[in-house]
Write a protein that binds this DNA or RNA. Sequence first.
DNA 1: CTGGACCCTCCCCCTGGGGGAGGGTGCATC
DNA 2: GATGCACCCTCCCCCAGGGGGAGGGTCCAG
Lengths: 265, 265
Amino acid sequence: MLTIGEFSRLSHLSVRTLRRYHDAGLLEPATVDEATGYRHYGVDQIPTAQVIHRLRELDVPLSDVQRILRSGDPQTRAMLVADHLRRLESELERTRGAVASLRRLLAPEPPPLDVELRVVPATTVAAVEDDVAVDEVLAWYAGAMAELDAAVDDPTGAPGGLFDNELFEDGRGHALLYRPTARPPRSGRVHPVTLPAVELAVTTHAGEHDDIEVAYGELGIWVVTNALAVAGPVRETYLVGPRDTTDPSAWRTEIGWPVFRVAPH
Amino acid sequence: MLTIGEFSRLSHLSVRTLRRYHDAGLLEPATVDEATGYRHYGVDQIPTAQVIHRLRELDVPLSDVQRILRSGDPQTRAMLVADHLRRLESELERTRGAVASLRRLLAPEPPPLDVELRVVPATTVAAVEDDVAVDEVLAWYAGAMAELDAAVDDPTGAPGGLFDNELFEDGRGHALLYRPTARPPRSGRVHPVTLPAVELAVTTHAGEHDDIEVAYGELGIWVVTNALAVAGPVRETYLVGPRDTTDPSAWRTEIGWPVFRVAPH
DNA sequence: CTGGACCCTCCCCCTGGGGGAGGGTGCATC
DNA sequence: GATGCACCCTCCCCCAGGGGGAGGGTCCAG
């Protein structure tokens, strides 16, 4: 039996951290003296401590660590770890994108964007829609787009999406992905939706999607300086995207904000 | 002038977060109504908000974001950003190591390690020593090893290190890197040190350094089950390392824990 | 003038730890 | 047997960077 200090030296986890893991039910001491509260660990707990240490180095939340340890089954365990590794990888992808975007954001002289006002009539389209969180939206987009592609066989235009402002303001909100078609089918999540008529302030973003905030910013500035206000979800139209060409500089995304005129102050 | 809600929609930062950034002095509203406390932002603040957003996506601490924004000079700014990118990369490296190690840790049947007890006499060596934090120790090691290599021209054995237990228990502690030599020189941080005689429990770890905790664990179990206790800093000896071969499976690190016999309970 | 959308501040919560206070325990030495 | 000292205990406050929600003021259209 080892005292907490000895176990700390052997496991390379701090005494404080060991106590916390005890409280969290992650790594219970083999015995606890009832009278004094002294914790005592067995040498057989060292490997467990090491696994926890590694998982924490990978920022696996304590609750997940617990689930991993509880599942004695190596299969389940391997699966849970693999899950986290996948999360790490997508995180990595996100980081790469943000780094690239930041470089461009800090680069001098971004070219100015043209903004125009356009009246869009109501249209009926094939759509997939859901309430999603902002950090799930990329994955959701991929799935929804694949399902749309499979369901719509006679598209009459580029695909697009509508994203509620709450999605960005509160971290979750309604998202709708659509494909225009003459006869919208109904299959799986795909169903017909009639998009309302709106007046849109529109600009076109060229290049990586990571930089799209720049276009949003320009569009926002234009909307405000033209005495307009935002009324409803953003519309994105994917004119040219990864589905069309692998050259990011050729990609074109149209973004439009529904607007209405406000009285000048 | 935009209200906080409008600015939130245009910048894709939540209202709460904007208020926090105001409190932190990161992104001050253009004006604040004295009577009502209402914040008002200008459209020219949208690009700044976007830069902050990107930096935060990269987990740049708010204080660093502030420094980056304050330094109007694009040169300094680029440098600060590059600094952070370097940190991200080393983080990435660490993650890669932990992932690999975790896989091996969860792999079935690690081969058992041989442990032996060895009496080591006092020796005088050329050493570099410092108080370091556990997350700096790899960088410190690299620098110290390079300085030792440059200063010692007639090594009489493999290099080694002594690491205080506090380094692992408290996150910082004393570290000493040495090279045995007949005439220890004195130059820069390099100076002669006499390592005390100790009785060491010794085992040899093969392969990636990331896995060394496994060897520590085995050694700890051996020490305890042989009724010994730890007395002093760990000693590592780098028998075969990256300096000798690029094949990680050929690397050999000897780890030794100074021990003394304890009375049986 | 009333309702609803919007804004304000303030406090508590989360994650995974660290610092330190104040007090009890185990053991060797005097 | 007392004393010192290392070690152990619990409890509370602190950090980042937010989110949730209470309680109350403000703006504007109908």
